[in-house]
Computed example of a mutant assay.
Amino acid sequence: MIAPIFQVCAASLAVTALLGTGPTRLYPHGEAPEGTERPYAVWQVVTGSPINFINCVPSTDRYGLQVDVYAETASAADEVVSALRRVIGQHAYITGFGIDAKDEDTHSYRKGFDVAWLVSL
């Protein structure tokens, strides 16, 4: 199993109002298709491990995710991050805040955060 970040976010009207539908501009592996309309968000697994027990097989995995938002303006990036945090925070733990800068390659404002997501097997 994998953390259901896309399913949770794509089911949120607040998120899809900003990232669209068909497709919802939230992409795995930290990469969006070339020419994707902004704003968009990407996510990737940066760490993960089973939650081990001495007397049985793990029943839960912990995924550490990094989420990054790219937007034309800093305020648009903030708005998408806020919507994503609200919906993700109902299912997982926001564990830290990452980059908050203008990306040199895309000339987009980039803002990110980290998530710990527990997934039952």
Rank of each mutant, 00 (worst) to 15 (best):
T47C: 10
H29R: 11
I54W: 14
T60L: 08
A83G: 06
R85V: 12
V42F: 10
P50E: 11
E31Q: 15
S120K: 12
F113K: 01
V87K: 00
G22F: 14
A17M: 06
G20Y: 05
A14Q: 08
T47L: 12
W117P: 06
Q66R: 11
D100N: 08
Y40K: 00
E79R: 00
R25A: 07
Q66V: 13
S120G: 08
D68A: 09
N55Y: 10
I54N: 12
V15P: 00
Y109F: 13
G89R: 00
I51A: 06
V81H: 01
G30W: 13
H107D: 14
S59G: 09
V8W: 05
R38N: 05
A3W: 10
L13M: 11
H91S: 06
A3G: 07
E34Q: 10
S82C: 05
D61M: 08
A32G: 08
T36W: 09
I94A: 00
A77R: 01
P23D: 12
S49N: 14
P33F: 07
A74V: 07
V15F: 02
F97R: 03
V81T: 07
L19M: 07
P28N: 10
N55L: 08
T106P: 03
V115L: 04
Y63N: 05
Q66A: 14
V46R: 02
A17V: 04
P33W: 07
F53D: 12
R38Q: 13
P28H: 06
